[in-house]
């Protein structure tokens, strides 16, 4: 360990990130799957039917009890739910929704709203960068030349491909093809892991070159301060992005696992769409981060 290496607690903190991210990803996946599965899907028994066919009365009564207890998927009782009565699909409908269409639309718009919050989250960081770049253009330009362009480029291609592959997978499950979705998810996870591996290597390389801001910073001279600002932005931006990647990998891995168990249907694949949105969004963030860090100031004027 050379004396130029930054304090080990930084590396310890960075090592925490994958664990935290994976844990969060699986937690989110588990939370969204609890309560969905039902062993015996309740049948839609209307009041008139129950009156006419006494043997259906017990079935209706137990459906009512399940509804009263607020069990998700116990819908179908109040007849306000048009659309599919296929029990395989109905058991995925939560009791506050009219039908699968209603639930899927709501879930997707909810995810888009969440992505809007993420846009504003990263936007704050970009505000910081923009202001500093305006004030200290030379220092920031010089600092950005120390980034590894080939790693950034390869990573961009990896992410673009992974986004395309997962989008393909979503298209496949619309036709009910769990197997192709499984393989698309596996490839996506692989590409994501490759991205992260390259990223970790890049960080290690940056740390070796003393590019972490602080005492012993590699770039000295009049631009040292603003270069450190750039590299702070670099580590914060790529660090936050990596955390989102890790969570995303967890989510896509969960989709892969569920697809393996043939869990999704042509009539119900909302979790896949929602995860796809998240994953593509992580890609979008990188598409803005990449030129900012690696490209825009690389060639001096």
């Amino acid at each position: 360990m050379s004396s130029a290496r930054p304090a080990t607690r930084r590396s310890r903190f960075l090592a925490l990130l994958p664990g935290l991210g994976l844990f969060t990803g699986f937690l989110v996946a588990w939370l969204s799957s609890t309560g969905r599965e039902r062993e015996t899907p309740p049948m839609h028994v209307g009041r008139t039917e129950a009156r006419r066919h006494p043997q259906l009365r017990t079935q209706r009564r137990s459906a009512v009890l399940r509804l009263r207890r607020g069990e998700p998927g116990s819908g179908g009782y109040y007849g306000a739910w048009a659309g599919s009565t296929d029990p395989q699909i109905v058991r995925h409908i939560e009791f506050q929704y009219e039908g699968m269409q209603h639930q899927a639309e709501t879930a997707l718009s909810g995810m888009w709203l969440f992505l809007t919050t993420e846009v504003v989250f990263f936007g704050g960081l970009f505000l910081l960068y923009m202001v500093y770049r305006l004030r200290h253009l030379d220092g920031i330009a010089e600092a950005s030349r120390h980034t590894e362009l080939w790693i950034g480029t390869v990573n961009t291609v990896l992410l673009l491909t992974s986004s395309a592959v997962f989008s393909y997978g979503v298209g496949r499950i619309k036709e009910g093809d769990n197997r192709r979705l499984f393989w698309a998810s596996v490839v996506t996870v692989g590409l994501g892991l490759a991205f992260l591996l390259l990223k970790f290597y890049e960080w290690w390389d940056d740390l070796q070159k003393n590019l972490f801001p602080g005492p012993g910073f590699a770039i000295t001279g009049s631009h040292s301060g603003s270069a450190q600002l750039f590299w702070s932005f670099y580590f914060i931006g790529t660090g936050l992005h990596a955390i989102h990647m890790i969570i995303g990998i967890g989510l896509v891995a969960w989709v892969a696992w569920s697809a393996r168990r043939q869990r999704y249907l042509a009539g119900w694949f909302t979790p896949v769409e929602v995860v796809g949105l998240y994953w593509s969004f992580v890609d979008m963030v990188w598409l803005v981060l990449f030129p900012t860090i690696y490209l825009v100031d690389r060639v001096g004027s």
């Binding site: 673009l160 986004s163 395309a164 997962f166 989008s167 796809g276 949105l277 593509s280 969004f281 890609d283 979008m284 963030v285 598409l287 803005v288 990449f290 030129p291 900012t292 490209l295 825009v296 100031d297 060639v299 004027s301």
Partner: peptide
């Protein structure tokens, strides 16, 4: 150097394309 300002714009364009198509 003359096209440097276009770089982030292209990046934003790529992001918008991903949003419109993949998402």
């Amino acid at each position: 150097p003359i096209l440097r300002g276009a770089v982030p714009v292209i990046g934003l364009g790529m992001a918008v394309l991903v949003a419109l198509t993949f998402m």
